[in-house]
Design a protein around this nucleic acid. Structure first.
Length: 891
RNA sequence: GGGAGUUUAGCUCAGCUGGUUCAGAGCAUCUGCCUUACAAGCAGAGGGUCACUGGUUCGAACCCAGUAACUCCCA
């Protein structure tokens, strides 16, 4: 049978993914084994796979596969998030394209369209995850708006309300005029924007005070203008001004104290108020106070009991209260009002100005601060235990640097606006009575019972439910509980078995959005943390460090990458560049490296596969076998250690080197029989067994190629369920440190031989004689065959004196001589030796400096001194050899 | 403006309690090889003022202070 020259991922991937599915290897049900649980961070239901998902889910799959191979009952729960604003926005756009306006639809009609949309496009992303090899228990797939999931959300809301943690109130919220909903602070993205600063003149009302101040000014020969100038980026809101504020300490404006001014264009009178809040050196030092349209102004307005004049509609067009430019959009109005002010002589000047502006994360509209009636969740008390879990280490954040950030946020948490003026989501279970009072209950029927306590005559039709839906994070915050039905049935077998989950893998940007809220709900509902560890991945950036985004077009399509490099290659590529918690500069070349690695594995397989076994042969490779076994165990320790610390890329690198360097480059070369020669059966059996163990170690990282090779007849007949995915990871055996160290010296010897050959431009085919003068305890007879095979050495002789006229090198403390037919280039050889000698002399000097330093000898730990002493002895021995070689060369 | 973080080879990163021949890895680069598993490969080599300045110490990439640049979070 011909074996393909390279590994062909396409054939293997679908085949084995389906095989795993058919044999239920991803399925988890509670049993007597220890559970290992991960809940997926649910992606937006209408989303498509991007590089961030790719990284995130590769990590989860590595963890879950490894747990499975350690005998745990591994359960990875997949699902999607309804993402209310994002999805509703998409549906609205889709309807618009079909000529349908959301305004013309009833809530029910709109939701029907939305569900249709969800059925059609929802869950594409989950199908894409399968291409990556994600071993989720698909039977458990959840959607945050599934009936049971929504019920859990309502239950939780009612629960919090009963505890007095939910309230309704007028607040300044971040209003998204395009989505026509409030969004939370976390959903506002601030960006630096170039704007204009408008200097507007407000004329001062002439009254009896004016006369007084004028005369005062006259006394001081000061000319007081009859207007004040105010700097603002938002001239369209002057109509909503309630006051002008100056700092009471500002000497420029003493004459304004107690006065009033006219708002330009509409000539409404507003007072001048005094507050130290105003920065004297910004703008003109006069601040226009517009309580309805700015958060700080709102607070200032509350303090000074100013009226609130809201001149904007929900879509950010001007309403009748504006009196002028009614119906115009705020940005159009801004330009027009500037012209009007100019014409009225009220515009002093404009300046360029950059400042931070809030944009809606979902619609990218400029956020408008707006007063509105919203639902809030009190956070202060809820946040305390959620913070405690992290501070006392019960929940570990990886890397730890996020603990500070988390604490800072949780200690300064503000009440959470949970209502959204949307239809797609869980409708708030608050029911209004005709008199305006409301009750909160799970169903309308239960609400009626509650309502009867207020008015016994009410019927069910007298109740109207609140129009708003709950923030999406309100439902995803329940995710680790609700996917196991733990909100509705807190004592069911599944939640008791799987909860708390083990690891959560997510992005640091949603630490507060999501992670904090799961900790809160976990404690609130179960008095238990939702997970033990939170692994925070970095943001995937491009080579230039830019965040990957659709608008920049710098994000490769993950499916294209899989197509090009194979799923295993892409997985390896993602992991190679992903230290925990640091952003990663992704570059396709990492995937290429992953693909090449798969190919290397494939070729090692091809080599072994081609061997003929002759059972009459003795095993000449006992040392090589013993060494690899020891080296393998050493690697297992390293890999285990890396996993314990969630250093996944290092665990992968240790695996990579084990396979490429130790197994392929050294071990296979040590035991490889000569061309077309058979191999002895013991070496063959052991080598195949090593390979099988390597496949197991590789599997979490590279599930497809490992499973593909696992089933080759090289490893014998496999039962139907004997698959790599459920194989148990090899136990860690003994490490023979001495052997490992000695082979390391042997490797140095081999490298030096090759180096000599290279520098003399000798063919690797030409066998060379090697003489060794042993100064160490190494028994070179033991390693003779290895050195001969790897260095192509014709004969290895032990000598007691330096060999003159030979090329020499040192490995460890032993001396090696290669006698060549060609004359030794004494000059070049001498220079080389001299260079080494100089290095050693410098080294000795620094060691001696330490050892001669009394303070070092007095303070350093004894083992350090011992090491230094040994370093000195070693260096001196080497130096002696070098010097004698140099002397021999000179003769 | 407040807080956090980063700075080590061309690139991406390790370097854990200050002390192993400690300045490392992978990739990239250079040189030589189409050597019967693999050119997506093999063999070998070069490459660093550990951001800067000072301090502590017998000893600093590591601890401390300051400076600079970049990144993120909050206002």
């Amino acid at each position: 049978m011909d074996i393909a020259k390279t590994y062909l991922p396409k054939q293997a991937e679908d085949k084995w993914y389906n095989y795993w599915l058919q044999h239920n290897f991803f399925r988890s049900v509670p049993d007597e084994r220890e559970p290992y649980t991960i809940v997926i961070p649910p992606p937006n239901v209408t989303g498509v796979l991007h590089m961030g998902h790719m990284l995130n889910n590769t990590i989860q799959d590595v963890l879950i596969r490894r747990a499975r191979m350690k005998g745990k009952n591994a359960c990875w729960v997949p699902g999607t998030d309804h993402a209310s604003i994002a999805t509703e926005a998409k549906v609205v756009t889709m309807l618009k394209e079909r000529g349908i306006n959301k305004k013309d639809l009833t809530r029910e009609e709109f939701l029907k369209y939305a569900w249709e949309w969800k059925e059609k496009y929802g869950g594409i992303i989950l199908e894409q995850l399968k291409k990556l090899g994600a071993s989720c228990d698909w039977e458990r797939t959840k959607f945050t708006m599934d009936e049971d999931m929504s019920e859990a959300v309502i239950d939780y809301f009612v629960h919090l309300h009963k505890k007095g943690l939910i309230y309704r109130g007028v607040r300044m919220v971040n209003w998204d005029p395009q989505g026509k909903t409030a969004v939370s602070d976390e959903e506002v993205i601030r960006k630096e924007v170039n704007q204009k600063l408008y200097y507007i003149k407000y004329s001062i009302v002439q009254d009896e005070l004016a006369v007084l101040s004028e005369s005062r000014a006259a006394n001081h020969f000061i000319h007081t203008p009859n207007f004040v100038t105010v700097a603002t980026t938002r001239p369209e809101t002057i109509i909503a001004d309630a006051a002008i504020c100056v700092n009471p300490n500002d000497e420029r404006y003493l004459h304004l104290h107690g006065r009033k001014v006219y708002i330009p264009l509409i000539n409404r009178e507003i007072p001048i108020i005094l507050d130290e809040y105003v920065t004297m050196d910004f703008g003109t030092g006069c601040l226009k106070v517009t309580p309805a349209h700015d958060l700080n102004d709102y607070e200032l307005g509350q303090k000074h009991k100013l009226p609130i004049i809201d001149i904007l509609n929900d879509d950010a067009t001007l309403n009748e209260k504006a009196q002028i430019l009614v119906g115009e959009d705020r940005f159009a109005a801004r330009k027009k009002i500037a012209v009007l002010l100019e014409e009225a002589g009220a515009l002093a000047k404009t300046e360029d100005y950059t400042s931070q502006i809030g944009f809606s994360e979902r619609t990218n509209a400029v956020i408008e601060p707006k007063l509105s009636m919203q639902w809030f969740c009190k956070m202060q008390e809820l946040a305390k235990p959620a913070l405690e879990y992290v501070l006392n280490g019960e929940v570990k954040l990886i890397p730890e640097k996020f603990i500070n950030t988390y604490r800072h946020w949780m200690e300064n948490v503000r009440d959470w606006n949970v209502s959204r003026q949307l239809w797609w989501g869980q409708q708030i279970p608050a029911y209004y009575l005709p008199n305006g009072e409301f009750v909160v209950a799970k169903t309308k029927e239960e609400a009626l019972v509650e309502a009867h306590a207020i008015d016994p005559k009410l019927s069910i039709d007298d109740l109207t439910q609140d129009e708003d839906v709950l923030d999406t994070w309100f439902s995803s915050g329940l995710w680790p509980i609700s996917v196991f039905d733990g909100v509705r049935n807190p004592d069911n077998a599944e939640i008791n078995y799987y909860y708390p989950t083990n690891d959560l893998v997510t992005a640091p940007e949603i630490l507060f959005f999501w992670v904090a809220r799961m900790l809160i709900s976990g404690h609130e509902l179960r008095k238990q943390k939702p997970f033990n560890n939170v692994y925070l991945t970095g943001i995937v950036r491009d080579k230039l460090g830019r965040k990957m985004s659709k608008s920049l077009g710098n994000s490769p399509d993950p499916l294209d990458l899989i197509d090009k490099y194979g799923a295993d290659g892409v997985r390896v590529g993602m992991l190679l560049c992903s230290p925990a918690g640091n952003d990663l500069m992704f570059d396709e070349s990492y995937c290429e490296q992953g693909r090449n690695f798969a190919n290397k594995i494939w070729n090692a397989f091809k080599l072994i596969k081609g061997w003929q076994v002759d059972s009459s042969l003795e095993n000449p490779n006992a040392i090589a076998i013993e060494w690899f076994e020891s080296r393998f165990n050493h690697a297992l320790v390293e890999i285990e250690d890396n996993f314990k610390q969630y250093r996944l890329s290092e665990a992968l690198m240790a695996t990579y080197k084990l396979v490429w360097d130790d197994y392929c480059a050294w071990y296979l070369e040590m035991i490889k029989p000569a061309y077309q020669q058979p191999i002895d059966s013991e070496t063959y059996t052991r080598t195949v067994a090593f390979f099988e163990n390597i496949l197991k170690v590789l599997h979490p990282f590279m599930p497809f190629i490992s499973e593909e090779l696992w089933h080759d007849e090289l490893f014998g007949q496999r039962a139907e369920l004997d698959c790599c995915i459920v194989a148990q990871l090899p136990n860690i055996g003994q490490v023979n440190t001495r052997l490992n160290n000695e082979i390391e010296i042997i490797q140095q010897v081999v490298t030096q031989i090759r180096n000599t050959r290279n520098s003399k431009q000798l063919s690797p085919k030409e066998a060379l004689p090697l003489a060794v003068k042993v100064n160490s305890a190494i028994d070179y007879n033991k390693y003779q065959s290895i050195i001969k095979q790897l260095g192509n050495i014709s004969e290895l002789t032990l000598v007691t004196e330096a060999v003159s006229g030979a090329n020499s090198f040192i490995a460890g403390t032993d001396e090696f001589y290669i006698t060549l037919n060609i004359a030794v280039d004494a000059v070049a050889e001498g220079a080389r030796l001299e260079k080494e000698r100089e290095y050693l002399l410098g080294f000795l000097k620094s060691v001696n400096a330490k050892l001669c330093n009394e303070r070092f000898m007095a303070n350093a730990k004894p083992e350090i001194i011992e090491i230094e002493t040994r370093k000195k002895a070693d260096a001196e021995a080497k130096l002696k050899i070098l010097e004698s070689n140099l002397a021999a060369l000179a003769n």
